[in-house]
Amino acid sequence: MPDNLGDTSAPLMATAASEGRAHDPTALGMVGIEKYFGLVCALRNINLEVGRNEIVGLIGDNGAGKSTLVKILTGVFPPTRGELSIAGRKVDWRGYSVLSAHAHGIETVYQDKSLGEKQALWRNFFIGREITLPFGFINVKREKEIAQEIMLSTIGFRGKGITVDSRASKLSGGERQGVAIGRAMHFEADLIILDEPTVALSLKEVRKVLNFVHKIKEAGKASIYISHDIQDVYEISDRFIVMDRGEIVASIAKKDISLKALDEFLLEYAHGLKDKEQS
């Protein structure tokens, strides 16, 4: 059976991986990204690089522009201006979509819209990228085999009574994010964006999600981790990017700052802005 599995996943990997990528040290580079919604400026002069095996923590208050940035990266909508290169290759905004972001090796794990609740797990792994027989029919047997493989080996699922046929609603919040992360890793993502993956989870479930994120690092992939929780971000990130009102205001390597100092920096920053407003 393992041989069989190897055969089935090989073509998938071939579609996701591209030859030129291996030599470029950056997974992602953004230059001068701006986004306007009508006259409202949501993002201003965003310059950001993410290394090939770097976990970047993206921190910022509500409305700082984190979600807008994620949506541009993942192809939900294009920026007003600016350049994006993935693994050293410039992205053409025309025709850049969710599917082409996937093809470029960018996968996203959302807070709450990663899985179809009423659908079986094997469907959730392959939705939008089905393994098909002729005429668009789904190769259910192969999808289930591979889903099983991802659950056991990639994300080390040991949930009691959970199989590839279980509906997503049967999983705990942490397990759902595990499925989404496992899916991203299966499809050979070079950069996995985690958009507030631990909101509304219990501490135990947050722990599970953080363990899944550690697996991203171990697998040699890059990640942008977005969260409100400074402790989580601090634990798993190599570098912190602080955003405020549509701009990047700081980029700090983990080795240069302690958790306490980072926390104080953010607090000071928030207070500083408040003072500015008042004056």
Binding site: T74, V76, V98, T108, E117, G128, G136, F137, I138
Partner: peptide, 28 residues
């Protein structure tokens, strides 16, 4: 039955009915 349960089109229908936002971000 085959269209709904065994075809890409049917799977897209189920995910859209389940949560259209999920379907959209998964590239449907």
């Amino acid at each position: 039955w085959f269209i709904l349960n065994r075809h890409k089109f049917g799977e897209a229908i189920m995910f859209i009915g389940d949560n259209a936002e999920v379907a959209r971000v998964m590239g449907i």
